[in-house]
Nucleic acid binder design. Structure first.
Length: 441
RNA sequence: CGGAGCGUAGCGCAGCCCGGUAGCGCACUACACUGGGGGUGUAGGGGUCGUGGGUUCGAAUCCCGCCGCUCCGACCA
């Protein structure tokens, strides 16, 4: 992408409404634009990151055996009357009437709808297990939206729903999602710690929140230091291996970890003081097993091997991509801007042409640009007719992981400077060496 | 929803107390000079002062209503 032709409305000054660093940087880097309280547009740079986050989530959900669907944002109140939640949900649910004056709502979650899909088609235990998910916009009319897309009213959520014949199978489904979540957050460059959670209005008795530690987190969290060193399940982990899934779950839930709502001071105090971690955290995922809560009310039943009908056991599994993006920034930035993990960086490489209009610089920049693109990299070339300082600042702000500086000084010896955003290391290389270095990975 | 505050050019702000026809920095446009970490000069463009009403010869400024937004608290992916 040529920056001169891109839409990247960066801000030099800090927007006054942005209190936390991720919100400030997302606005400054031209990733998002607030349209209303808790409602945001995603601009090109932000959209690129969001798409990469979603892709990783999608890959890991699929790997764990879930199937992607897409349910609508607008739902009929009828389904919610079946579950009883139309009355229970309260003002957080945006209620609207269509032109026939039928009560509708903008979905805050999709248990009812997915249960309706399930009961319409699935009759036999032989079709289980089943896990359906979608990545869709939700609306929850939060009392107080804040922190940019970290807590917005309109947001995108990946929500998966598992259906099983009995509790044992449902727990297996839960462990699979648990494992998929560990892998997902790891690939996003985050260390997420599963903590026992309150099940809240969704109900149920097995639930974990995935929390990442960050000073600007919303809630206080407490856990054992061991979590920081646990290994993440490998890419080839066998999701059909019940014993393995259970083992992973057990390993990751053996030690103390709780948010302030679930905190047990005595249990935490029993941990050696040097092993205690007490910090603030951001909730980036939440998983629940809630048994037959919805299947019972909505008649989602399958025939079992015993020739009798069974209400299916369900679980739901949420990740908030529009919250993950700021969470990643909270976890990874410096005074100059964002430091993206490579897996979600909007561009892999930034080329800084320091003297646009200078024939040698222009040619060298374009050569690198086309070679790297040929190698399949996402490249952003700063070909604006601007001072170098502004270009460096822009590259650092938007956090491109590798920067190639093409300037008249280096061109005298045919060299460019390759700089790593995260480490700050720089080295001068010939054109070919620079291209080779960046295409090698 | 309770408490606090803000709304003046794209962004950040001054002007309001004490009424007299709107200003600063950045950004933007043109040209020139520049070019290794947000440059310099010259010349420009851009504002229903959130909105409706009231007071007044005259309102960004005073009064009343409404709308929007932010921050603190209780709730949430």
């Amino acid at each position: 992408m040529r920056l001169s032709q891109y839409f990247l409305p960066i801000l030099k000054e800090n927007p006054k409404e942005a209190e936390i660093v991720s919100h400030r940087l997302m606005l400054r880097a031209g990733m998002i634009r607030q349209q209303s309280a808790g409602i945001y547009s995603w601009l090109p740079l932000g959209k690129r990151v969001l798409d990469k986050v979603n892709d990783i989530i999608r890959q890991e959900q699929n790997r764990a055996g879930a199937h992607e669907i897409l349910m609508p944002t607008i739902q009929s109140a009828d389904l919610w009357n079946e579950s009883g939640r139309y009355d229970d949900y309260g003002k957080e649910m945006l209620r609207i009437n269509d032109r026939q004056d039928r009560p509708m709502l903008y979905g805050p979650t999709n248990e009812e709808m997915v249960t309706d899909i399930f009961r319409s088609y699935v009759r036999s235990y032989k079709e289980l297990p089943l896990n359906l998910y979608h990545i869709q916009t939700k609306f929850r009319d939060e009392i107080r939206p804040r922190f940019g897309t970290m807590r917005s009213r309109e947001f995108i959520m990946k929500d998966a729903y598992s259906f099983d014949l009995n509790k044992e199978d449902a727990e297996f489904a839960y462990y699979k999602m648990f494992t998929a979540y560990l892998r997902t957050f790891d690939r996003l460059g985050l260390r997420a710690i599963p903590m026992r959670a309150d099940t809240g209005p969704i109900g149920g008795d097995l639930s974990h929140e995935f929390i990442i530690l960050a000073d600007t987190g919303e809630s206080e969290v407490f856990c054992h230091k061991k979590f920081l060193g646990f290994d993440i399940p490998e890419e080839d982990v066998d999701f059909s291996d019940r014993a393995k899934m259970k083992a992973i779950f057990d390993e990751w839930t053996e030690y103390y970890a709780a948010t302030s709502e679930m905190h047990d001071e005595a249990a935490f105090g029993a941990i050696d003081a040097s092993e205690q971690v007490s910090d603030r955290g951001i909730e980036v995922g939440h998983i629940f097993y809630f048994g037959t809560k919805y299947s019972a009310k909505m008649g989602a039943k399958v025939m079992g091997p015993d020739g009798r009908e069974h209400e299916v056991h369900m679980g739901s599994y949420g990740i908030g991509p529009t919250r993950l993006v700021p969470a990643i920034i909270e976890a990874s930035h410096d005074d100059n801007g964002i430091i993206w993990p490579e897996s979600v960086a909007p561009f892999d490489v930034g080329i800084i042409n320091m003297k646009v209009g200078d024939e040698t610089c222009d040619e060298a920049s374009m050569k690198i640009y086309s070679e790297l693109q040929k190698a399949g990299l996402d490249v952003l070339i700063d070909d604006r007719d601007e001072r170098a300082g502004g270009k460096f600042a822009t590259a650092d702000l938007i956090g491109v992981p590798e920067q190639i500086v093409v300037g008249p000084r280096g061109m005298k010896t045919g060299e460019v400077e390759v700089k790593n955003r995260k480490s700050g290391e720089r080295e001068s290389l010939t054109l070919e060496a620079a291209i080779n270095k960046l295409t090698a990975g």
